[in-house]
Every structure is written in structure tokens, then in C-alpha cells.
């Protein structure tokens, strides 16, 4: 904790502290993991006590949750949503499927490694991860934010060509509009 403070200016520290304690999540229900989100947010696990609350649109969201396997069809939307989010933005990926394809590792229409398409901050292992695990994941993200290490958007922008190439590879009919996201 204390060494984090030293490496940052006070303004940065305050900003990161507020970012850490105010996470608006864009829960993208890509797969079976979506079922864990309500449980996380409602009374029993009450993620709001950590400052986590849902956001309705990517414009307001800080965290993109990829909750499970991603079909190529869905990937396009995910990329779109991700690109519409404003910096600093974070991605949390749920479950094994986002790490290596999990049980869909040889599926013809499911991507295996999410990292190749959008940068991910925190993977939450499990199939599926329970809310406790999800909250643990969030806390890990919060730590990362507080350290000032989580800046997903910059990473994406810097390596855009690489990501784009990967995205193009799986999304055959690439009709993403050329907006100035």
C-alpha cells in the first residue's frame, strides 16, 4: 500500500483512489457466467459496498465483464462496446473459456484466448467462478487500479494493429464502421 503512494503524485493518488472505489460495470452477458453477476450485486454478496455498481451504457462504464465463452459473433459486439468505453477502462474476464477456450477449446465459432482480441486486466478462474471469486477478482482489479497499473485502453491503442489483425482473423465479415472511437 504505502509504496504505491510514493510512486504517484497526490492528484494521481486521489484519482486512482476514486477509480478504485467507484467501478461502474458493464456486465456483458456473453456466456453462462452472466448468472453470477446478479448474485454478486444483490444482497448476499453486495458488491455495491465496494463501490461497484452496474452501468447501463458503455459510455459510463469503467469495467467490462466478459462473462464466459465468446462466440465470434458476440466478439464483434464486445469489441464495439469496449471501444466505446472511455479511458481508463478495465476488462475482467470470467471463467476458463476466456483464458483458453475451456470446454469450447475446439469449437469452430468460439474464440479461445480473449487476450488476443482485447486486453484483459483480471482473469477470474473457474467454471464458473462463484461470486466470492468474482469479488476477489474485483478486489484484485482495485488493487491494480490503486497501484496505477491498470490502464487497459492505452495498451489497446498502442497495440491496435496487432489486436485488429487478430480480430480480423476470426471475424470474417468485418463490417465495423470506421468511426473515430
Amino acid at each position: 500500500m504505502e509504496n504505491k503512494r510514493n510512486s504517484q503524485t497526490i492528484a494521481e493518488y486521489i484519482k486512482n483512489w476514486s477509480r478504485k472505489h467507484s467501478l461502474f460495470i458493464m456486465a456483458y452477458g456473453t456466456g453462462c457466467g452472466a448468472i453470477e453477476i446478479p448474485a454478486t450485486l444483490t444482497s448476499r454478496y453486495d458488491a455495491e459496498r465496494l463501490g461497484i455498481r452496474g452501468a447501463a451504457t458503455p459510455r459510463q462504464a469503467d469495467v467490462l465483464l466478459i462473462t464466459g465463452y465468446l462466440a465470434t459473433k458476440t466478439l464483434k459486439r464486445v469489441i464495439r462496446v469496449y471501444e466505446q468505453m472511455q479511458d481508463p477502462k478495465y476488462v475482467i474476464a470470467f471463467g476458463s473459456c476466456t483464458i483458453n477456450g475451456g470446454m469450447y477449446y475446439d469449437s469452430y465459432n468460439t474464440i479461445n484466448v480473449l487476450e488476443k482480441y482485447i486486453p484483459v486486466d483480471v482473469y477470474i478462474n473457474g467454471c464458473m467462478p462463484r461470486p466470492e471469486a468474482v469479488i476477489a477478482g474485483f478486489q484484485q482489479l482495485q488493487d491494480k487500479i490503486a497501484r496505477g497499473e491498470a490502464d487497459n485502453g492505452t495498451r489497446y491503442k498502442e497495440n491496435l494493429e496487432w489486436y485488429r489483425a487478430n480480430q480480423h482473423r476470426v471475424i470474417k465479415n468485418w463490417r465495423m464502421p470506421d468511426y473515430n472511437w
Binding site: S18, R19, S22, R49, L50, G51
Partner: peptide
């Protein structure tokens, strides 16, 4: 639920501004 702190809105605001 436990809920957020009553200052949560301030935190949100600071985050939005940052």
C-alpha cells in the same frame, strides 16, 4: 445489504471527473 458509504456519490463524481 451493507451498501456503499454515504460518500459514495462523491467518489463517483471524482472518478467521473478523472
Amino acid at each position: 445489504r451493507v451498501g456503499p458509504t454515504i460518500w459514495q456519490n462523491f467518489i463517483d463524481l471524482v472518478k467521473l471527473q478523472s
